[in-house]
Structures are given as structure tokens and as C-alpha cells.
Amino acid sequence: MTETCNQALELELKRLIIDALELEDITPADIDPSAPLFGEGLGLDSIDALELGLALQKQYGIKLDSEADETRRHFESLAALQALVEARRVN
């Protein structure tokens, strides 16, 4: 059951990233949960980081400090992002 929930959230986050960042050539299957989201891997940039922060706030009510080191860790990979959402979502 937990496994199913995890997979559902993983897919939901992949779709959130694709929609919020307008990744028109990327499908959920293209996003490796353990690969870096920024720079290497998916290749997102600093504007994407701000956009993703806004999407997390809108979707899950999670507010992040853009200057904090821990924010950098939360954005390292899809798996890290999923752990953040599971721990801090308010809706």
C-alpha cells in the first residue's frame, strides 16, 4: 500500500515538474528519481528552481527559503523532493 502511495506521489511530482517548467519534450519516464535535477541530469536552471519552489508552495503548501543550504539538498533529485513533500506537505 505504502509502495503504491510512493509511486503515485513520484508520478505526481514528475508531472508537476513537467507542467510547471514547461518541459514539452520530457515524459515522466524520462525523469530518473535519483538523477540530479539541476545542471547535469535533467538540466534545470536557477529560474526553474524558483518556479519549482512556487509550484511546491501552491500544490503542497510547502514554503522554502531560497537562500538556505537545506533547500539545495531538497532539490538535488526527484527522490529528495519526494521526501520533502512527504515530510512537510500541509495539503
Binding site: L21, E22, I47, D48, L50, E51, L54, Q57
Partner: peptide, 9 residues
Amino acid sequence: EPISPTRFS
């Protein structure tokens, strides 16, 4: 609502 950082940039 907050505006999109991408669109602002």
C-alpha cells in the same frame, strides 16, 4: 497570486 518567475524573467 504570485507571478511565475519564468514568465517574469
